[in-house]
Design a protein around this nucleic acid. Structure first.
Lengths: 227, 227
DNA sequence: TTTGACAACTTTGTCGACAATCGGAGTTTT
DNA sequence: AAAACTCCGATTGTCGACAAAGTTGTCAAA
């Protein structure tokens, strides 16, 4: 449970969290219709809190809702993901540039340590692509934190982060990109350590572009398989 | 009603819309506590739909909520606005760059026409700073549309747009920036017409930086007055 | 066979009442 | 007098039932 472990929470908050988890992990398929009564029963609560949860998920863009008809899990098609990566490039690029001047030496050191841990995980490679993927997101989130921009953290952390995780689960098979990604991460950390914001931004943008190319090819492949 | 006139809507949607409007226009003061029962009665509905509306507003970041305590209208302090403008700079800069290659000649012509209309409004200046402000946001939104990036349009359109409008209402007194702003807008349109994405991005970023400086000074002034 | 309307069913939208929790006034204690 | 405790009113959280709208299946007519 990487995100928001709700300590003191209402039932609606619980439901929001569980549903988000289920959607991100693919337990609830893309485009699937969500039945209020059924979900309420499954979670052991009334329909009231559940409806509130659905409203919140709508705000997080994890579901789409049509009045008097119902809500469905969003569908991550090619265009949506393309848009997402374009926005990420701008946002995370900015985060990197600012983080280069704002992060403490200690924070940057921690970032480097995170990559070491990350590398060790790859070495083991015990099918733990999941953990690897979450680790990567951690890296990106730490940089967002380094920008000291709460709005940026919210954007990257809540909405985009979730969609991205969703995408990862879908395409978690491609392990071949983990090594170049790690190398790029290291370059970014080095730029941060040198307080070179411009370079850090450039490297991050390239990194995300590379990730998009990789994802894009995978989608092409899927589409070809489907045809 | 510039945004989302809900045609076929549920009561909760209606409430969301009305509340958003009230918050943005300042009718509901920043930091004000929102009482469910009171609002429900005022809108002539039960507490159920109203609670759903509050959840949605929470997603739009117009209110903050604390479990078992209640929800309050967000407070736009200096840091929040600073963060907002930084994010806008990155996002709208990107929108401009992409729009330069994606917008049709016709759309760019419409954009120019919008500025003419805008200029006429300024000439009259009948205290209609409100309309002027909305016109400015229209300009920015049209460019976001030009990027053909739905996620970008959502981000700039729903959340940020609302916060920005809120800020405008608060600081709508500063009319002195309208003329330089218009001039900058024209430069941007020219860059778009020349299909010069890089220049368009640069100009937009400067434009937003200028807007932030203006807002920032105004906040300083307010703080000095308060002291 | 296809198409249209009708009816029954399912699902969403809404309300009112009850339970749980929090904030504050008043009182007690050190 | 300041701090802590206690109780009470107010507000939020939750549930079940009812109303309204949409969906689906059936049957008859073209």
């Amino acid at each position: 449970m990487l995100i928001r472990p709700p300590q003191q929470a209402t039932l609606a908050d619980l439901a929001t969290h569980k549903l988000a988890q289920s959607i991100v992990t693919g337990e609830l398929a893309q485009g699937q219709k969500l039945n209020e009564a059924e979900l309420a029963e499954r979670f052991g609560m009334g329909r009231g809190p559940l409806r509130e949860a659905l409203r919140q998920l709508e705000g997080l863009r994890l579901v789409k809702r049509i009045p008097n008809v119902g809500v469905r899990v969003v569908v991550l098609d090619r265009k949506t993901l393309s848009d997402l990566y374009a926005v990420r490039e701008a946002l995370e690029g900015m985060a990197c540039r600012i983080a280069a001047s704002q992060m403490s030496d200690d924070e940057i050191a921690q970032l480097a340590a995170l990559l070491d841990k990350h590398e060790a995980q790859i070495a083991q490679q015990g099918g733990k692509l999941y953990a690897q993927s979450e680790g990567d997101l951690d890296f990106h989130y730490q940089i967002a934190r380094g920008s000291r921009n709460q709005m940026l953290m919210d954007l990257l952390g809540s909405e985009q982060y979730q969609l991205l995780r969703m995408c990862r689960y879908r395409t978690s098979r491609n392990a071949q990109r983990t090594k170049p990604a790690l190398s790029q991460h290291r370059q970014i950390v080095e730029a941060l350590a040198n307080r070179d914001g411009e370079l850090a931004e450039l490297l991050m943008r390239r990194h995300i572009q590379g990730a998009w190319r990789s994802i894009s090819e995978m989608i092409d492949q899927e589409e070809r398989e489907a045809a």
